[in-house]
Nucleic acid binder design. Structure first.
Length: 440
RNA sequence: CGGGGCGUGGCGCAGCCUGGUAGCGCAUCUGCUUUGGGAGCAGAGGGUCGCGUGUUCGAAUCACGCCGCCCCGACCA
């Protein structure tokens, strides 16, 4: 992409309304624009990041055996009356009427709808286990939206729903999502820690929140510090196999959000030097809720004995739009964002230090063409801004690698490659620089 | 929903207390010079001062109402 033809509205000054660093940087780097309280438009750079995050989430969902669908944003109020949640849900639910005065709502979640879909087709235990997921915009009319996309009213969420014949099978489905989440967040460069969370009226130990540590996090969390450095299950993980050892290696160590924190247990189970008390951002949650929806909504399947039983369900959410903010909270410096490579909006920033200089232009065009042809995503700054302004902009938007080309270097036969995260600079020949990102 | 604050060119702000023809920085446009870490000079364009009502000879400024947004708290992915 040529910057001169792109739409990248950067802000030199910090908008007054943004308090936390991720919100400030998202506005300054031209990722989002606020349209109303807690409602944002995604600008070109922002949507690229959002899509990359979504893609990683989907890859890991698919790997774990979940199947993508897409449910609508608007739902019928009658559906929610079946579960009793239409009345139970408070003012957070945005309620709408259509031209015929039919009651609708903008979905804050999709348990009812996915249960309705399931019961319309599935009759036998032989069709199980089943896990359906989608990524869709949700709306929760928060009293007080804040922190940009970290706590918006409209937000993009991946939610998966598992269906099983009994609790034992449901636990296996739960484990698959748990492991998939470990992989998902790690792939984005995040250290996530699963923590015990409120389970609601169902009880049991089958609910975890996945927390990313950050000073600006909204929850106070407590855990064993060894959880920060646990190995991430590999790509070759057998999701049909026994995942219990992976789960157990983590659940054996204390980890809880403040809702369920027990200070006495914390001190008893965790050696003093390993006690970690910090702020955290919740980026995902896994939850087993049994027949909470299937029973009232009559989503039943026949078991091997021919008897119909309500299906056992769980739900598994990931805050996709929130993750953009969470990643920035975890990865930035004074100059701006530092994108982990897998979610970066572009792979390489090509900086032409002197647009208009024939040799420099030609070198840049050549590099741009070769990298683009090799499938490398390049943002080429071909504008006639001054070098200082170009450097500052690229630091702000945080593309992982900068390829800097100027007349001075070209005379010596070199271009410069700079790593955004470390600041390390290398001088390479043009060919070597191209090969760095697009090995022949 | 309780408490606090703010709405003035695209962005950041001053002006308001003490009413009298709306200003600064950045950005934008034109020209010239400049070009390896947010350039200089000269010129130009751009504002229903959030909306409404009232007070006044006169309102960005005073009063009342409304709307929007932000912050603290309670609540949530």
């Amino acid at each position: 992409m040529r910057l001169s033809r792109y739409f990248l509205p950067l802000l030199k000054e910090t908008p007054a309304e943004a308090q936390i660093v991720s919100h400030r940087l998202m506005l300054r780097a031209g990722l989002i624009r606020q349209e109303a309280a807690g409602i944002y438009a995604w600008l070109p750079l922002g949507i690229r990041v959002l899509n990359k995050i979504k893609e990683i989430v989907h890859e890991e969902m698919n790997r774990a055996g979940a199947i993508e669908i897409l449910m609508p944003t608007l739902q019928s109020a009658d559906l929610w009356r079946e579960s009793g949640r239409y009345e139970a849900y408070g003012k957070e639910m945005l309620r709408i009427k259509d031209r015929h005065d039919r009651e609708l709502l903008y979905g804050p979640t999709n348990e009812e709808m996915v249960t309705e879909i399931f019961r319309g087709y599935v009759r036998s235990y032989k069709s199980l286990p089943l896990n359906l997921y989608h990524t869709q915009w949700k709306f929760r009319d928060e009293v007080r939206p804040r922190f940009g996309v970290m706590r918006g009213r409209e937000f993009l969420m991946k939610d998966a729903y598992s269906f099983d014949i009994d609790k034992e099978a449901a636990r296996k489905s739960y484990n698959r999502m748990y492991v998939a989440y470990l992989r998902t967040f790690a792939r984005m460069g995040l250290k996530s820690i699963p923590m015990r969370a409120e389970t609601g009226p169902i009880g049991g130990d089958l609910s975890h929140e996945f927390i990313v540590l950050a000073d600006t996090g909204e929850s106070q969390v407590f855990c064993h510090s060894d959880l920060l450095d646990m190995p991430i299950p590999g790509e070759d993980t057998d999701f049909d196999g026994d995942l219990e050892p992976i789960i157990k290696s983590r659940t054996d160590l204390y980890a809880a959000t403040e809702d369920v924190h027990d200070q006495d247990r914390f001190e008893a189970e965790v050696p003093e030097g390993k006690r970690l008390s910090a702020r955290g951002i919740e980026v995902g949650q896994v939850f087993y809720f049994g027949t909470k929806y299937s029973a009232p909504m009559k989503a039943v399947v026949a078991g091997p004995d021919g008897k119909e039983v309500p299906v056992e369900m769980g739900s598994y959410g990931i805050g996709v739009s929130r993750l953009v903010g969470a990643i920035i909270e975890a990865s930035h410096d004074e100059a701006g964002i530092i994108w982990p490579e897998p979610v970066a909006p572009f792979d390489v920033a090509l900086i032409n230090l002197k647009s208009g200089d024939a040799a420099t232009d030609a070198a840049c065009e050549d590099i741009y063409a070769r990298l683009t042809k090799a499938g490398v995503e390049v943002l080429y700054d071909d504008t006639d801004e001054r070098p200082g302004a170009k450097f500052a902009s690229m630091e702000l938007i945080g593309i992982p690698h900068q390829l800097i080309v100027g007349p001075r270097g070209l005379k010596a036969g070199v271009v410069e490659v700079k790593n955004r995260a470390t600041g390390a600079k290398e001088e390479l020949s043009m060919d070597a620089a191209v090969n760095r990102f697009a090995p022949a």
